[in-house]
Design a binder for these strands. Structure first.
Lengths: 201, 201
DNA sequence: GTCTATATGACGATAGAC
DNA sequence: GTCTATCGTCATATAGAC
């Protein structure tokens, strides 16, 4: 088989497009993102994006499902994580999950696609997908990570504050704003290094 | 002077338009909202909205500033609140501020305009306004309400979770989802009644 | 202070070829 | 599996009258 000019399967194309869509939806929001920009980011033509996903709304829903699946997979991995070295102190569950989350939402496209989804609760077809994903996360924390309801609540609350701090770009003015530095320190704790590393990039 | 057909001052018009804009931006997002819809909600023509605010971006910025001012005013009032009746037990500061917040963001237009602002951190002119507003809130909690940095952090984190729960519409499926009910109970505590009352409306 | 008319430029989706 | 061409719609902003 030829290597580059080969026609690839629609399954692979769909995945390529979803990656591009997550980035574009994250950057421009649901309405501001255009199927044309998604197409160019994926290296194909605009009508083909529409052909494969039907409508822009369907494309967004698939992209949202895709990011939610990534989030759940990251949490599942963190829950199952065991130190390879027996001597290593096993970090607490909450610490592992928190670190996994901060790593994940360092991808701005993923973070903002997620947030746009949560904010579209009144959309008849997108809303249910977002709510369902959110509650799946809650149940995973409670039933698989073993959190109490209040532990899960506090973990999620911190997560939503992390979202806001990162989305608003406050990380970029930490050196100029002592209050922001104080708030970041409280919010991220030992995850602060991770955030600063990603913010620099 | 005539009463209804009187030409009103541009200052009054601006305020009318800002109220309409907050509602429309909240419902459709920054890009999805049109100056025409804002105009119709305010009962005037589309070009006149542009005339008074210059551009749609400027209109959004003014609407965002307007909602941030409302938020700060509500917190300032809650901080200053004293029981009129001496016998009444003064509620804790945190409880008063929490209640004020839930009352405020029961207005979906206000809530979503705020959230859209926070999510637009990478926009060169909107981003700074949003970040500035957020940090003003933080400083008010710390310096005027007397919160420690960690108290302020936890209050804000809860606030951001409240935003997500309300924006995503989870309040509407509380009766059908035991997990959601559990999470709402942890998150809102004694503010739960307030939320349910507003959700019903 | 406020309107109508309109220039100008997208965007989503369809038709149909290869 | 993928493209080019294009239709219909709608949005921001300007011009200029009243």
């Amino acid at each position: 088989m030829t290597v580059n000019s080969e026609r690839i399967s629609s399954g692979e194309r769909r995945e390529q497009i979803l990656v591009a869509a997550t980035e574009v939806f994250g950057q421009y929001g649901y309405v501001g993102a255009t199927t044309d920009r998604v197409a160019r980011a994926a290296g194909i033509s605009q009508p083909y994006v529409v052909r494969l996903f039907g409508t822009k709304e369907q494309l967004f829903i698939e992209a949202l499902r895709y990011t939610l699946a990534k989030l759940l997979a990251a949490f599942r991995a963190a829950i199952a994580e065991q130190p390879a070295d027996g001597r290593a102190v096993e970090r607490a569950m909450e610490s592992r999950l928190g670190e996994a989350y901060v790593e994940l939402v360092a991808d701005r496209g993923l973070l903002l696609t997620l947030l746009h989804g949560f904010m579209m609760g009144s959309e008849p077809v997108i809303g249910p997908v977002a709510r369902d994903g959110f509650m799946q996360v809650y149940r995973m924390l409670r039933d698989e990570a073993g959190f109490t309801p209040d532990q899960a609540h506090r973990f999620l609350a911190d997560g939503m504050l992390i979202n806001t701090l990162l989305a608003s770009g406050l990380a970029l003015q930490l050196s100029a704003d002592a209050g922001a530095a104080e708030l970041f320190s409280c919010t991220f704790g030992d995850k602060l290094r991770t955030v600063l590393d990603h913010a620099a990039a």
